[in-house]
């Protein structure tokens, strides 16, 4: 039987969704994290608790939200709380297992930038800014990050640290007094990176089908370490692909355009 064909973006979203487990409490960013989290909920993790910073807890959207506070999130939630309550009781209160974030730029210790490219006062690109990410990165039990892997995004030095990963490596996070364990996986369109057990520098641990080690190294702005035992990401299953495509199709019908 021929294997189904799929895009690199589909592989990325599916690989990300597989890291989420049933009954986890997941604080979800808009875009790629939202697609991966809902795919997990619709496949292997039906009881995952999805939380968006707009205050929606235990939400089960039928289509992906375009914005963080879409009516679909409110209408399908177990409860909707105010934004101060969300950040105080639920995030800072230590009730989140996984913070799931996107990023514009990331460095070798999985610190991320969503503020500016270039100098802050004279930016080359002005990005939307912090939103909820800094405190999600600090306080969630652990953090997953999903973004496309290019040398422009995976940089030697961030232009701005919006949300911390492992700071400058080693036990820096613990010394800084951050409550959460920080990023434990970075999922890209090429593979999966995880922090080294002691240095906390990201290393390539899995390659998606058809991607070479050299490709991943070339798409990284620092000298990327490759794990001694490099794994091969299993290709998407028929169910994963069909579920993801149906989700995107419902979303496009509802919004009149494709959402990430």
């Amino acid at each position: 039987m021929a294997e189904p064909t799929y895009t690199a973006d589909e592989m990325m979203t599916i690989a990300a969704s597989r890291l989420l487990q049933n009954r986890m409490v997941c604080f979800v960013g808009i875009g790629l994290p939202s697609a991966a989290s809902n795919l997990a909920r619709l496949t292997h993790a039906p009881e995952i608790v999805l939380i968006y910073e707009s205050g929606t807890i235990g939400t089960k959207p039928d289509v992906l939200p375009l914005s963080i506070g879409d009516g679909e999130l409110s209408a399908t939630a177990d409860t909707v709380v105010s934004v101060p309550e969300m950040f105080r009781y639920w995030l800072q209160g230590g009730r989140i297992d996984i913070g799931f974030l996107g990023a514009a730029q990331i460095d070798r210790f999985a610190n991320i930038n969503t503020t500016v490219i270039g100098p802050y006062d004279k930016p080359k690109v002005r990005l939307p800014g912090a939103g909820g990410a800094p405190e999600i990165a600090g306080s969630a039990g652990e953090v997953f990050i999903v973004l496309r892997q290019t040398a422009r995004a995976f940089v030697e030095k961030l232009d701005f640290i919006t949300s911390v990963g492992h700071l400058d490596g080693g036990d820096a996070r613990k010394r800084a007094g951050l409550p959460g364990k920080g990023p434990s996986a970075v999922i890209t369109d090429l593979g999966i990176l995880k922090p080294h057990s002691t240095t906390r520098e990201l290393e390539l641990v899995s390659l998606h089908p058809g991607v070479t080690k050299e490709q991943a190294i070339g798409a990284t702005g620092w000298k990327l370490n490759v794990a001694a035992r490099l794994e091969a990401t299993p290709p998407p299953t028929k169910i994963e692909l069909e579920t993801l495509r149906a989700l995107h199709a419902r979303t496009a019908r509802a919004h009149g355009s494709a959402a990430a």
Binding site: P84, F87, R88, Q92, N111, T115, Y120, A130, P134, E135, G138, S139, F160, I161, T162, S163, V164, L167, A176, G177, L178, P179
Partner: peptide, 21 residues
């Protein structure tokens, strides 16, 4: 905002560690 509603001059929170803001 919650501090403002509470008539307090500032809010205290766990945040901004290692952040450039």
């Amino acid at each position: 905002y919650a501090a403002g509603a509470s008539g307090l001059p500032f809010a205290v929170m766990r945040g901004y560690v290692g952040n450039d803001l």
